[in-house]
Design a protein around this nucleic acid. Structure first.
Lengths: 246, 246
DNA sequence: CGATCCTTTGATATGTTTCAAGCTTAGTGG
DNA sequence: CCACTAAGCTTGAAACATATCAAAGGATCG
């Protein structure tokens, strides 16, 4: 809004650049997007199924998840978001949200009007393409989660989830290795992997005893990255990052 | 290519119009896309993980599926495609395919050069937006599959899958109700739902005994649509079709 | 600093898988 | 057009991974 560009939205630019090329003009235009910063505690709903959303939520700090509720009231977490992710880009084109967004940890987010995003896409086809590419990368992550839940046993599922969270932190510029933020309770891990919290606990214990990880309070330590990837049948290709990380 | 537009690609126009508005100009431009028609038998690979694809595959007749292979060699089917679907749109922006596409039945497809699709998007932002919206709808379907596999039991999973296949046939203009094409073997249903073929069989039997469906050779008959939807915890909203169907 | 939520562990129950074998259907070649 | 063969379907019995129930100890937060 002022002459030296506001740098609050920089994580969004960096995120898009992990998958697409952006010109200086476009980078600047993104930084200039109107937005409203918000700080929230853990376990707050940022959006709800059925909302007619007027803005998208860009994550600046902390972690959020997307979740669906079944007819029986069970919750399935379908994806996680962190620094640089737009948690509900689909609001740009769908008129009604079909899932909830909630904070897993304390978060700082920027709410960006949909109108502004669509105008930006219209003005710069390059931006439209970058968002489309990001939506496709999200789709690829969804496919991998379908595989994870459908074909892998508990140990593989949990190990795979740990790998994803750790690698995405790397790419998003978090500190590490080998120490990373662990943003989820065991119950939330259960909702993300289709397991019960009790079984998640037993699985964590096993991975700990195998010397792969160490889990203390709100952080993970990766003791054996190669071993953890093998345990989780993890191959980072599905994340579609251009440069290599970790 | 000639003056009266070739109508081969009409299903693609119709499909995009279930989710977006298209102008006459754009409709015509889509019909004029260069393409090559191909007829294939069931169980043929149309694309493979790792391919550097130069074109996208539009389904004209028959059914295909997207699948991933785990490190242990297990196959997870992540989505199904029929008349009007582009089976691998992500090839437009990703440079390497991360899944297989195979025919479930005999199929007729049109291979459309990626170059032509991207040029069309550049010329008509409206087309770019329609494709983006379609990618988002696919993402929504992936989320529902994650929910289906992660939170529902065998009976619900199978019933849900049947509902999806039937409703998508409705929207794509297939004949019915109550008779629809059933494009999958029980083993393929297992790979789509994270169940074993044996258990799929027992589940089908149960749905049959409950008077919900009748399954004969390559077709399903829906005996109780409301009951089947209830059994599958099915709510069509996630398919993001504008008009109502069924 | 109390109260709630989270983690940990044990014992038991259950849905789904695995193994195995017979049967049916569909496709293919003589 | 029939016979042969492979693929898919069906069913039963036993094994197993994960869910469920229950209860105690620890951490976190307002």
């Amino acid at each position: 809004m002022t002459s030296p560009p506001c740098m609050k939205l920089l994580p969004m630019v960096q995120r898009l650049e992990t998958r697409s090329d952006l010109s200086d003009t476009v980078r600047r235009a993104i930084l200039d997007l109107p937005h409203r910063i918000q700080n929230l505690r853990a376990n707050i709903f940022l959006a709800r199924q059925g909302d007619q959303a007027g803005h998208c939520i860009l994550i600046l700090k902390g972690f959020t998840c997307q979740s669906l509720i079944s007819g029986e009231g069970k919750r399935q977490i379908s994806s996680l978001h962190m620094r640089g992710d737009v948690a509900d880009l689909e609001n740009c084109l769908h008129h009604q949200s079909d899932h909830d967004i909630q904070s897993l940890t304390a978060v700082e987010v920027a709410r960006i009007p949909i109108r502004a995003i669509l105008d930006l896409c219209a003005a710069h086809p390059e931006v439209a393409r970058a968002f489309w590419a990001d939506t496709m990368a999200d789709a690829s992550i969804f496919r991998e989660w379908i595989m994870n839940i459908g074909q892998r046993d508990a140990r593989q599922r949990v190990a795979h989830l740990i790998c994803e969270i750790v690698l995405r932190q790397e790419v998003a510029g978090f500190p590490g290795p080998p120490h990373y933020i662990w943003p989820m309770t065991q119950s939330e891990v259960g909702d993300a992997t289709g397991l019960t919290p009790v079984h998640v606990q037993r699985t964590f214990k096993r991975l700990r005893l195998e010397g792969l990880i160490q889990l203390s309070q709100k952080s993970v330590t990766i003791l054996n990255w190669a071993g953890l990837q093998a345990a989780g049948d993890f191959n980072k290709a599905y994340l579609h990052h251009r440069q290599q990380a970790a």
